[in-house]
Design a protein around this nucleic acid. Structure first.
Length: 494
DNA sequence: TAAAATCGCCAAACAATGAG
DNA sequence: CTCATTGTTTGGCGATTTTA
């Protein structure tokens, strides 16, 4: 019988959760959420960097045989993008350098600091190398220097790439564990039975599992994992209690006030409305604005004069209610206006973004936002365009964070412990389903936005995707309007 | 009485959350 | 990834109390 060789993806699937590996092997691809990798461009940069540095010094080897014989005979070389395997493991290596009898190992990651799971990856690669050679191995990560400033030219790789040596961190890990893991993984693969692993923090760490929902179909609607801000202690206590349903929880002291409120609301199937909500909802000044920004974030250059991972504002959406509502045929109706800005052409939108926004929000009235994201972006813009700093500060002072108000003064069992605008919107009566073809979440929106701006979308689909994105952005601020109306109406009965 | 244990307070460190 | 915010845990430090 031929054992399936373990590769990196299988190994780390299992490390996260044995059930995840089972699903990887047994569920059809269509049920899986395949995300496009962000890594290729950085790999290309790395190859370019190594070629430029070592092409004239050392031979560049590509196949396993040459690599093995060169190391055995102490001949320097470098090698990019190759595969190494023994009878159990098959791994892909980004880059390697062999000089002074030392193997230098490199893994490329579009990130800015070395994370624990990257170190584990290096450790696995090192383990396989140790199977072939006794040489000293030094481990490195090729990351991105977040302080690098893109200019008109191609990035200066000496500055842009951040090569970090992690040998010590890798050596602090236990490599006996790998051997054990491998035999366990083989057992899991061979038995091919669904493991009955319970849900837990591993479902999101280090990455949110593709099968997150698969493991939750038969669980109580109000599972204790939905209780937010759980401390380590609380997690342990809940585990020890062995109660998974919030409704069955006994009264306990060690919950925070927010947690207690949520539990009470779930148990009574009743929303929570604070006494002060009414006053707060009556304290805002017309005209009312509802504002949302869309930004793009990328490790790579999109516009000159930006840094890696710096959010670049490209689009805003603004609903407004100019005056107090009037009664129309018995219904309390307010006229809502809509205004927006966007630029998908590939030119830097930042100046126009702020200039148009300043005009549109005028000089008075409360501006509702959700989270402080918009404020933070505005502060950055103010640094960039000091001539607008004063006007921007005035806008910031008019901002009201509906997230903060909601979290403190309102709860509905359907929030399921989450105060994100998406879960909060679920209680609003109007049809709020995100049911567009291309854009159905904030994630989709930012991905699509960046694809539009960097012109990665073919012209056939472009029009439709633009429309979807615009509709999505409009819906997002409309959700904010509806949330405002909802909070106002529930507080009026108090 | 001196050393050890305990307490209270504060600041620093850490973790979780939201947005994109 | 970032960054602000909020809440929690941790560590330091002196003062007080307990113990041998």
């Amino acid at each position: 019988m031929n054992l399936t060789k373990i590769n990196k993806s299988k190994y780390f699937s299992w490390v996260q959760c044995d059930k995840k590996l089972y699903f990887d092997l047994n569920l059809e691809k269509k049920y899986r959420n395949i995300r496009p990798s962000n890594k290729q461009q950085l790999l290309n940069y790395t190859f370019e960097f190594f070629d430029r540095k070592y092409k004239n010094l050392y031979p560049k080897l590509t196949n396993k045989k040459d690599i093995i014989s060169s190391i055995k005979s102490c001949n320097t070389f470098y090698s990019l993008d190759f595969k190494l395997e023994n009878e159990k493991l098959s791994l892909h290596y980004d880059a390697m350098l062999f000089e002074n009898n030392i193997i230098k190992l490199f893994i490329v990651k579009p990130a800015i600091y070395p994370k624990k799971n990257y170190i584990k990856e290096l450790n696995l690669q090192k383990y396989l190398l140790n199977n072939f050679f006794d040489n000293e191995i030094r481990s490195h990560l090729i990351l991105i220097n977040k302080d690098y400033r893109f200019n008109e030219e191609l990035p200066d790789l000496d500055q842009y790439l951040n090569i970090v040596e992690c040998t010590e961190k890798v050596e602090s890990l236990n490599s006996n564990e790998i051997e054990l893991n491998i035999s366990q993984i083989n057992k899991t693969i061979l038995s091919n039975k669904l493991p009955n692993t319970k849900i837990g923090s591993h479902c999101k760490s280090p990455y949110q599992c593709d099968y997150f929902d698969n493991c939750r179909t038969k669980l109580p609607d109000f599972h204790v994992e939905q209780i937010p801000n759980q401390s380590k202690d609380l997690k342990q206590n809940l585990l020890a209690l062995n109660i998974t349903d919030i409704k069955k929880l006994p009264d306990m002291e060690y919950f925070t006030s927010l947690q207690k409120r949520i539990i009470k609301s779930v148990k009574n199937s009743k929303e929570f409305i604070s006494d002060e909500l009414g006053n707060i909802m009556n304290s805002f000044k017309y005209p009312l604005f509802f504002l949302d920004f869309e930004t793009i974030i990328s490790p790579y250059k999109i516009f000159p004069n930006t840094k890696p991972f710096e959010p670049i504002p490209c689009m805003w959406s603004l609903h407004s209610e100019k005056q107090f509502g009037v009664q129309i045929q018995g219904m309390y109706e307010n006229k809502i206006y809509y205004d927006r800005y966007y630029k998908f052409t590939g030119e830097d939108p930042r100046r126009e973004f702020i200039e148009k926004l300043i005009v549109s929000v005028g000089s008075s009235g409360s501006i509702f936002i959700y989270s402080d994201f918009e404020i933070r972006i505005l502060k950055k813009i103010a640094i960039m365009f000091p001539e607008y700093k004063h006007k921007i500060d005035l806008i910031i002072n008019r901002c009201v964070d509906l997230l903060k108000i909601t979290k403190k003064h309102y709860y509905h069992p359907k929030f399921k412990g989450s105060f994100s605008l998406k879960s909060v919107s679920k209680i609003l009566t109007k049809e709020n389903m995100y049911d567009l073809e291309f854009v159905n979440s904030g994630d989709d929106a930012s991905r699509v936005l960046i694809d539009l701006i960097t012109n990665k979308i073919n012209s056939g689909q472009r029009k439709q995707i633009e429309l979807d994105l615009l509709k999505y952005a409009e819906k997002d601020t409309l959700n904010l309007v509806d949330l405002y109306k909802h909070l106002k109406s529930v507080s009026e009965f108090m």
